[in-house]
Amino acid sequence: IQIFEKGDFSGQMYETTEDCPSIMEQFHMREIHSCKVLEGVWIFYELPNYRGRQYLLDKKEYRKPIDWGAASPAVQSFRRI
């Protein structure tokens, strides 16, 4: 998965294949504004440590949070399923 600090795949980008319990600790990001799921299925969580509201992401590109069903870019953790 590739995660971006700004919408439309702009700003700082990080790519990982590992679960992330805290985007702040692992990537020094506060929010995720866009992402590209390159393979597999992932779950975004609103809070750290896989808690809070969940969003299921299939293999595709998400230009903004509304594309994965979120009203805001408040994603604090994610993991692959």
Rank of each mutant, 00 (worst) to 15 (best):
V41I: 05
I3D: 01
V75I: 03
I81R: 05
D67E: 13
Y62W: 15
F44K: 00
M13R: 09
S77T: 01
S34N: 01
I81F: 15
Q12D: 11
I1G: 00
I1N: 00
D58F: 05
P21G: 10
I81M: 02
L56V: 04
E31M: 07
C20N: 04
M13N: 05
S34H: 01
H33P: 13
A74T: 03
P48S: 05
I23M: 07
I23N: 07
Y14N: 13
W42Y: 13
M29T: 14
T16F: 15
Q12N: 14
T16K: 04
N49W: 10
S34D: 00
N49D: 10
I43M: 14
D58P: 02
L38Q: 05
F27H: 14
G52K: 01
F9G: 07
M24D: 05
R30L: 07
G69I: 14
G11D: 09
S10C: 05
Y14L: 12
I43A: 12
L47K: 10
S72H: 02
I66E: 10
F27L: 11
E5H: 07
Q2E: 10
E46S: 05
W68Y: 02
F44M: 13
Q2G: 12
G40A: 06
V41H: 09
S10L: 10
N49G: 10
F44N: 00
Y45N: 04
N49M: 10
A71S: 04
E61D: 06
Q26G: 12
V37C: 14
R53M: 13
E15Y: 15
T17Y: 02
G11S: 13
W42Q: 00
C35H: 01
E31R: 13
A74Q: 12
G69K: 04
H28I: 14
Y50T: 00
Y62F: 15
F9M: 13
E25L: 02
G7A: 12
N49Q: 09
S72M: 04
R53S: 05
K60E: 06
Y62A: 05
G69Q: 03
F4V: 00
Y50R: 01
Y55E: 02
M13P: 12
A70E: 09
G11Q: 09
R53Q: 14
E18A: 05
Y50V: 00
F78H: 03
G40W: 02
R80G: 12
M29W: 12
R80S: 08
G40Q: 03
G40R: 02
Q2C: 12
M24W: 15
F9Q: 12
F44W: 04
D8W: 12
T17K: 14
L38E: 09
M13L: 10
M24A: 06
F27T: 06
K59H: 15
P21W: 12
R53T: 08
H28M: 06
H28A: 13
I66M: 08
S34M: 01
C35A: 08
F44G: 11
P48I: 03
L47M: 14
K59Y: 05
L47H: 13
E46N: 02
F4W: 06
H28F: 15
D67R: 15
Y45L: 01
A71R: 10
I32N: 03
M24F: 06
K60W: 04
L57Y: 01
K6G: 10
C35Q: 01
F9L: 12
C35S: 13
I3S: 00
N49C: 05
F44P: 00
I81G: 09
K6L: 06
K59P: 03
Y14W: 06
V75G: 13
Y62G: 05
E31A: 13
A71L: 03
K59D: 04
Q54N: 14
S72E: 15
V41A: 13
V41N: 12
N49L: 06
D8S: 14
L57K: 02
G11N: 09
E61G: 11
Q26E: 14
K6V: 12
D8C: 14
D67W: 13
V41E: 06
P73L: 15
W42S: 00
V37N: 14
P21N: 08
F78V: 07
V41P: 06
K59M: 04
F27D: 04
K60C: 11
Q76V: 11
W42M: 03
L57S: 15
L56S: 07
V41F: 10
Q26H: 05
D67T: 02
Q12S: 11
E25W: 02
E31Q: 11
A70V: 09
C20D: 01
D58G: 12
P73R: 09
E15A: 09
A74Y: 04
S34V: 00
I1E: 00
K60N: 15
Y45D: 00
G7N: 03
V41M: 12
K36T: 08
H33S: 12
R30C: 10
T17G: 09
P21T: 09
C20M: 09
D19A: 09
E18R: 08
D67Y: 04
L56P: 15
H33M: 12
M13G: 07
S22V: 11
L47D: 05
A71F: 09
L47S: 06
I43F: 10
F27R: 11
M24T: 10
G7H: 11
I81L: 06
Y50K: 00
I1R: 00
C35T: 14
L38R: 10
P21K: 08
G7E: 08
R80K: 15
Y50Q: 02
N49T: 03
I1T: 03
R53F: 06
R63W: 13
G11T: 04
D67S: 12
Y50W: 07
Y62P: 15
I23F: 10
L56G: 13
Y55V: 04
R51C: 10
H33G: 11
G7D: 08
E39S: 12
S10M: 07
F44L: 10
R53Y: 04
I66T: 06
E5I: 11
I81Y: 01
E46G: 05
D8G: 12
T17I: 12
R63C: 05
E39Y: 07
V41Y: 03
K36V: 10
E39L: 10
L57C: 02
P73W: 14
R51E: 12
F4N: 03
Y50P: 00
A71T: 06
E5F: 13
Y55F: 15
Q76H: 15
S22Y: 15
K36I: 07
Y14T: 14
E18Y: 07
A70M: 08
S10Y: 13
G69E: 10
Y50M: 05
T17H: 14
E31F: 12
D19P: 03
R79C: 03
Q54M: 04
M24C: 08
A71Y: 03
W68G: 04
M24S: 05
A74G: 13
D58A: 12
P65W: 08
G11H: 08
S10G: 09
Q26K: 05
G52S: 01
Q54W: 02
H33Y: 11
R51W: 04
E25R: 08
E46A: 08
Q76W: 01
K59T: 14
L57Q: 01
D8Y: 14
H33T: 13
Q2D: 06
F44V: 10
F4S: 04
V37G: 05
R63L: 15
L38W: 08
A70W: 04
K60G: 11
E18W: 11
A71V: 11
R30H: 11
R51Q: 07
E18F: 09
W42P: 00
P21C: 09
S10F: 05
F44E: 00
F44R: 00
I3N: 01
I23C: 07
T16V: 07
W42T: 01
Y45C: 02
Q26Y: 14
I32F: 14
N49V: 03
E31D: 15
L57E: 01
K36W: 15
E15D: 07
F4I: 00
L38H: 12
W42L: 03
S22T: 05
G52V: 00
Y45T: 02
R79W: 02
D8N: 14
K36E: 08
G11C: 13
C35P: 01
L47T: 02
G11L: 04
M24Y: 05
I43W: 07
W42V: 07
A74M: 09
P73V: 15
